[in-house]
């Protein structure tokens, strides 16, 4: 296999056009993903995680658009593809799993229809062949009597089963990459682990790359090999999962880890990062985290820190770590 990464996102910027000005929801995001590698994108609500995921598929809706950067996937530049070429990548080479399985499946179409149409959008096979592949995919996610289940509508399934169907749909075309945007957040705690296990197992057995978007550091540390921590549209720390979890560099990552219940169990108080994530209009000048950071110095308010290698072995964007 070549050294070429599966996905190479470089300096990605996504902006939303408002009446007066255009505001960046994602600025200068760069990361790479090797074939079969699993990357976690973590951060609080509003960090720009979903926007990053949708941008890779070029699915940013109306007021938003990609205003800068490149997205290279399997050697092709996705931002330069024509609409029809991009369509052939979506759901075929890159599949997406959404947050809420109750909303993701179309209520008026049978599960079979929604699976068959996906296969037939990308491969010239007959309806019967497509159905056979759908049945096979449902088996992989442990849906019993899949032939009968194909004729049923989404509301005849539980939340956990629906998310397994969504995963089965994502698998149909044997993609090289799956982008899962908070795939377990809307589910019962007991089912969350089951779905995560299933996803992990399938990614390993089918050698698929995974971008797991979540705000749950605990899940990310079990599933992924590398983590990108996002804050206010920027990656503030990027590196191997084990290293970041053991020895976080950036004050924001430390805050996130300290806020985990597991940390509190070690005798410390359950810590909280004071304040909240700024929205698009209130991002401070200089380091976006400066107004919540306990160690903030004057340089932090003046210049945006670049993402550079630190002695922990990870990349972090902080002036105070050099």
């Amino acid at each position: 296999m070549s050294d070429e990464p599966l996905l190479d996102v470089s300096d990605l910027t996504v902006s939303f056009d408002f009446r007066r000005r255009s505001l960046a929801a994602v600025s200068g995001v760069s990361f790479r993903l090797a074939r079969g590698e699993r990357l976690g994108i973590v951060g609080e609500s509003g960090a720009g995680k979903s926007v990053t995921g949708f941008a890779i598929l070029n699915l940013i809706s109306k007021p938003g658009r990609i205003t800068g950067g490149t997205i290279s996937f399997e050697g092709r530049e996705l931002t330069a593809l024509r609409a029809e070429e991009m369509r052939q990548v979506r759901g075929n080479r890159i599949s997406m799993i959404f947050q809420d399985p109750m909303m993701t499946l179309n209520p008026v179409l049978t599960v079979g229809t929604q699976m068959v149409e996906t296969i037939r959008a990308h491969a010239g096979v007959s309806r019967r062949q497509a159905e056979e592949r759908a049945v096979e995919a449902l088996r992989k996610v442990y849906i019993s009597s899949p032939e009968r289940r194909l004729r049923q509508y989404p509301h005849e399934f539980s939340g956990g089963m629906r998310q397994r169907i969504v995963i089965a749909i994502a698998l149909l075309t044997s993609p090289a990459l799956i982008i899962a945007d908070e795939p377990t957040t809307a589910l019962d705690v007991t089912i969350q682990a089951e779905i995560m296990d299933l996803l992990l197992k399938l990614c390993e057995s089918e050698r698929m790359g995974l971008i797991l978007i979540t705000h749950d550091l605990a899940v990310v540390s079990q599933v992924t090999q590398r983590i990108a921590v996002m804050y206010a549209g920027r990656i503030v720390e990027l590196g191997e999962t084990a290293r970041i979890v053991e020895n976080p560099s950036h004050p924001y990552t430390r805050g996130l880890l300290a806020a985990l219940p597991q940390s509190a169990a070690r005798g410390r108080r359950l810590a909280q990062i004071p304040g909240s994530m700024p929205n698009l209009t209130t991002v401070p000048a200089g380091c976006p985290f400066s107004d919540r950071c306990e160690r903030c110095e004057s340089v932090c308010r003046e210049r945006i820190p670049p993402l550079t290698a630190k002695d922990t072995g990870c990349l972090a964007a902080c002036h105070l770590l050099d």
Partner: peptide, 17 residues
């Protein structure tokens, strides 16, 4: 605006579909 329409797009269906 519904999620299932976004998902249909993410599945790579033809725009008319």
């Amino acid at each position: 605006e519904a999620e299932y329409v976004k998902f249909a797009r993410a599945k790579g269906l033809k725009p008319w579909r």
